[in-house]
Write a protein that binds this DNA or RNA. Structure first.
Lengths: 197, 197
DNA sequence: CGCATCTCCAACGTTGGAGTTGGTAATTCG
DNA sequence: CGAATTACCAACTCCAACGTTGGAGATGCG
């Protein structure tokens, strides 16, 4: 049988992504990853180095997917609610990434790819500021703070799901549509001029 | 020298709180906690049981402190902005709490002290629902979702401080007053009837 | 074929950390 | 005082998981 080294790599990385997302860097064992992939543990070390390097490799891959999937800015902000709704959708459909980023954020140290992410956020802030000048958005709130709050509006549900469940009494899947509607509505109330509500 | 068992307990718990908040349950070692407190490791096990029990004890304490510091329901919600502002203040002076809650959210398993917390949240939801019926608060949003979102408005800044910094370009301390004002204003826009803004 | 190189793995060495134990000093009570 | 109880700790056991190794099969090349 011919070797399938790329397939082996891929299966190992998929298993690693799932395990890291589920249990975090400290809670994940290399043996479990290998077992989940059906590959011997030694392959992990040969292909990816040690555990830390494997985690960074997984995170880098997921960030690349995010960058590829993120639509470029420039859209209108008239329907600011949909912006928040799409952020909500993205988190809902990429639970592994959200959890990986949370774990990465909780670990002390500088965020990965800080420069690019800062630039990306600043783009959004500038676009919001322009929309405020045009009267499309209310200028009640500082643009940077508004962007930050809008992201939080959507991401908060995934950041502390246990609190969401205690408050609403519903699971994330059952409550998806209602939660999304709430995010959209809240974003509109925060950002739109009173007249456009 | 007389025994100071309460002092020992307290020092151990303070050390455990700091370590857990900083490194998470898996990243924290019992030996480090003991060393930080200047107390022998065995005291941890005698007083608190195993690591899991210690973590739950720490989190329960922090939640109790938060509940005690949050104004009891029944007060008027006309100044809903101040409710959010006080939540913000609390997190600002207890930065460990947000991180502990995030780690709890990432860990699989049932939340700590679920019954009490659920009851506490339901109290808040009922109070908000009543205020909505009275017209003090807008009934645009579901009361449970509104409470969840208001908590998020305040806590989000402390959940992802690195994103806050990337967006605002300022450190938490320098930006405290502006951030608090933003939280208060956002809470008002979310919860108050348009006429009362 | 003979040799080098690559893929793969079972079994191993080692370490770090959870949880325990046996013993000592302080305190209380009769 | 003396016995019982409690607070305390150094040193220990044990295990889980990281990372390695030596060797066995598969492939390629001259």
């Amino acid at each position: 049988m011919a070797w399938d080294t790329e397939g082996t790599r891929r299966r190992l990385k998929e298993a690693a992504t799932a395990e890291f997302a589920s249990r975090g860097p400290d809670g994940t064992t290399m043996a479990r990853i290998a077992e989940r992939a059906g590959i011997n543990k030694e392959r992990l070390y040969r292909y990816f180095g040690d555990k830390q390097a494997l985690f960074e490799s997984v995170l880098t891959d997921e960030l690349a997917k995010l960058a590829a999937a993120t639509p470029p800015p420039g859209g209108s902000f008239a329907d600011i609610g949909e912006f928040a709704g799409q952020t909500f959708d993205y988190h809902a459909s990429h639970p592994e990434l959200a959890r990986l980023l949370q774990w990465e954020g909780l670990a002390s140290g500088t965020p990965v790819d800080q420069a690019n992410r800062t630039a990306h956020y600043q783009d959004k802030v500038r676009a919001v500021a322009a929309a405020q000048r045009d009267g499309v958005l209310d200028d009640d709130l500082d643009p940077a703070q508004l962007v930050f709050t809008l992201i939080g509006l959507a991401a908060w549900w995934f950041s502390v799901p246990q609190i969401a469940k205690m408050l609403t009494g519903a699971d994330a899947e059952d409550d998806y549509a209602r939660r999304r509607a709430c995010v959209v509505r809240a974003a509109q109330r925060l950002a739109l001029p009173p007249g456009r509500l």
